[in-house]
Design a protein around this nucleic acid. Structure first.
Length: 158
DNA sequence: GCCAACGTTGGC
DNA sequence: GCCAACGTTGGC
């Protein structure tokens, strides 16, 4: 069964525009250094799963587009690179600690769906959205999205 | 830039 | 294993 996810990104570092600029619009989702997020990536993110790309730490945070998973978890190469911001001296190729997946851009939304709008709708027209991990748990950069939530968010685009 | 809400580290 | 100190995320 297909699952849905939300991946957070800082657009200044690696946002949806960067993904769009990659060969075949396919990029490596690396730099995840949170165990809960890592466990989702490693254990549950499957081929063909759909992903909302969310821009955080920017002027208007929100969902900016969608992608699909084209390669499941493999060791994140940045953990072995001393020059990388994501270098982890405790990780070795024989014993990797962090994983990446590859995703392919599907769509950049004509208008982003702002966090403010999602919150607003959760309080008014679409109460179920209040259950979204996005609104319930801070600081989780890979998080599951229910199919109903995915569909509701898609409706908000109209 | 502020600061709340976390997660991580390390002394004991 | 507890918990204080510290670091990071991320909205505002």
């Amino acid at each position: 069964m297909k699952n849905y996810w939300l991946f957070k990104a800082e657009p200044d570092v690696y946002g949806i525009e960067h993904l769009a600029a990659e060969t075949r619009k396919t990029g490596r989702w690396d730099g995840i250094r949170n165990y809960q997020a890592r466990n989702f990536l490693r254990d549950q993110v499957a081929l063909g799963d759909k992903v909302f790309i969310y821009h955080s730490h920017c002027k208007v945070p929100g969902i900016v587009g969608s992608a699909k998973v084209v390669k499941t978890a493999y060791p994140d190469p940045t953990q072995f690179d001393p020059d990388s911001n994501y270098y982890d001296p405790k990780a070795t190729p024989a014993n990797p600690r962090w994983v990446s997946v590859d995703i392919e851009l599907e769509e950049i939304f004509a208008e982003l769906i702002s966090l403010a709008k999602i919150k607003q709708c959760a309080l008014t027209t679409h109460e179920a959205l209040g259950e979204m991990v996005l609104l319930r748990q801070a600081r989780l950069s890979v998080q599951p999205v229910k199919a109903t939530e995915w569909n509701t968010i898609q409706q908000l685009r109209k």
